[in-house]
Simulated assay, not measured.
Amino acid sequence: MTACVIRLDAPRLRAYETQLADLLVDAVDGGASLGFLAPLERAAAVAWWRERAEGVAAGRLAVWAARDGDRVVGTVGLAFPDKPNSRHRAELVKLLVHRDARGKGLGRTLLTAAERSAAALGVTLLHLDTETGSPAEHLYRAAGWAGAGTIPDYAADPAGVLRPTTLYYKHVTAG
């Protein structure tokens, strides 16, 4: 697979919202704990992505999409806090890779793009949460993210079962 990773501005996010929605539905159907319960209706996923365009336009959110040809096969985002004392950090959000595109390094490519962009923007600390024991944990650890702790019963998985969540962080620098 030859995926091209691009940062989406608000108009481009709106142009890709249905493909991003399909990606989100695929991830939830595949068991990824992303804040949604299964089955996730496509219309709800489209509406969720449509709402993200406002955050992108306002600079509160940055979103990247990985495209293989004309198809969106992955995405990642950075959410920027609005508090003056936290402008040095951002939260890594919604790192998704379509089930049929996994195992080819795309998750790592998206993660690296977000990390490098964060550093270029002057962000020095990234943080995220992910379901404890999920495949994503291996990716984050392999990419140098440090575990900060685990919270039991933090979020329901797509089937509605409460699962623990592990918090991770990583210092990034421009370079």
Rank of each mutant, 00 (worst) to 15 (best):
H88A: 12
P152S: 11
L8Y: 00
V97Y: 00
L125E: 08
A146F: 08
K170A: 08
D68Y: 11
A62M: 13
P152A: 10
L106C: 11
S86V: 15
V93I: 15
A15I: 07
G149V: 04
L20A: 05
A174P: 03
V28D: 04
H127Q: 12
A114Y: 04
R99G: 07
G74I: 08
R12Q: 11
V25T: 08
L126P: 04
W145F: 04
Y168S: 10
R87Y: 08
W49R: 05
V63H: 07
R14W: 13
A101V: 11
T124M: 03
H88P: 01
A45E: 05
L110T: 09
P11I: 08
L13E: 01
P158G: 01
L78C: 07
V63Q: 12
G103K: 15
G175C: 14
T124H: 00
V28S: 08
G160F: 04
T173M: 15
R116E: 13
A119E: 08
A156C: 14
A44C: 05
G31P: 02
T132F: 01
G31F: 02
V56W: 11
A90K: 05
G103D: 15
P81N: 12
G133A: 02
T18N: 13
G55N: 07
H171L: 15
W145T: 05
T75R: 01
A10G: 03
D26F: 08
P152F: 00
L121R: 14
V72N: 07
T124Q: 06
T2N: 14
Y168C: 09
G147P: 12
V28L: 00
D153H: 14
Y140T: 14
A159T: 15
G133S: 06
K94C: 10
A119N: 02
A65N: 02
A90Y: 06
Y140L: 14
L23E: 01
P164S: 02
A47P: 04
R87N: 09
A148F: 11
A53Q: 08
V63L: 14
L125N: 06
E17S: 14
A101M: 07
W48R: 08
N85Q: 14
V172N: 07
V172W: 09
L106A: 03
W145M: 09
P164A: 05
W64F: 14
D129G: 15
P158N: 01
R67M: 12
R108F: 15
R50K: 10
H88E: 09
R12S: 11
L125C: 10
V161K: 03
A118E: 00
I151C: 11
R141Y: 02
A21L: 03
R14V: 11
V56Y: 10
A119H: 01
L96R: 02
L95V: 13
G133Y: 03
G175W: 09
K104F: 12
A142F: 05
A90N: 07
P11S: 01
A142G: 12
V97N: 02
G55T: 01
R60Q: 05
G69L: 00
R99H: 02
A79T: 03
V25Q: 05
A57V: 14
A146S: 14
A114G: 07
G31T: 08
V172L: 04
Y168W: 03
A118Q: 05
A156L: 00
Y168M: 10
K94R: 12
A66F: 00
G107V: 11
L37N: 03
L139M: 00
G105E: 08
L61A: 04
